[in-house]
Amino acid sequence: MNETTPTVMDTKAIGGRSAEAAICARGITRDFKAGQSTIRVLHGIDTDIKPGEMTFVVGESGSGKTTLISIMCGILWPTDGEVKVFGTDIYKLSDAELVNFRLENIGFIFQQYNLIPSIDAAANAAVPLIAQGMRVGEAREKAKALLEKLNIGDQADKLPNQLSGGQQQRVAIARALVHEPRLVVCDEPTAALDTSSGRRVMDLLREVAVAEDRACIIVTHDNRIFDLADRILVLEDGLVTHDGTDMPDGH
């Protein structure tokens, strides 16, 4: 698959890396305060996420999917446990180091796209590069090239509100990939889209995002796209109850 699919990551696809786990999570627990009481949302999760594949995290609403990937991508501190992303123990980093680690290594795709309304598609897609300090013109060029790949090169100069939901999510995909991160996390990327555009977006994501040394985690409860997963983790009440290439029987 990685041999035949053209990816933006060709330059980074260094052989041999794939043996290393992209994410190594050990004993992850997370508590939330709810009024007087504390509720435990994650109950000690151990899992490795491998590069070169698309890992789906599925489960019912409230099962802790969002909490888990938030912890795995360095935006939510676990109550207990350890997360290594490509060998870096991310919660041992200082705040500033962690922010920079995310900027260099992680791409994000959100349910509501969260594009900046006042700047055009190319500028939105270029945000991580600009934040990394690249000149705006150069960053836009790179972003445009990626938008071409996502079949919306002709929309590069449009503002987000001039684009359809599917187009906006493709701009968001470009923003998540433009800086060639080694980890891409998506929370319910198709939840705001209808079936056909959700499907198209996911096909494109699979085509463009999967690379030999890049891991993709996708949180979803959209069973129409389960067939795109290389691996599926099922979360139930804060525990991984299934880990395999397909959905367990009965789902």
């Binding site: 935006i75 922010v99 900027l103 992680i106 994000f108 509501q112 900046i116 945000v127």
Partner: peptide, 18 residues
């Protein structure tokens, strides 16, 4: 109105200073 967008920027790794 834009708090989500700002949150997204922060998640991506844009510093408070920026």
């Amino acid at each position: 109105d834009n708090i989500k967008q700002f949150g997204a920027l922060k998640a991506i790794g844009v510093t408070n200073l920026k």
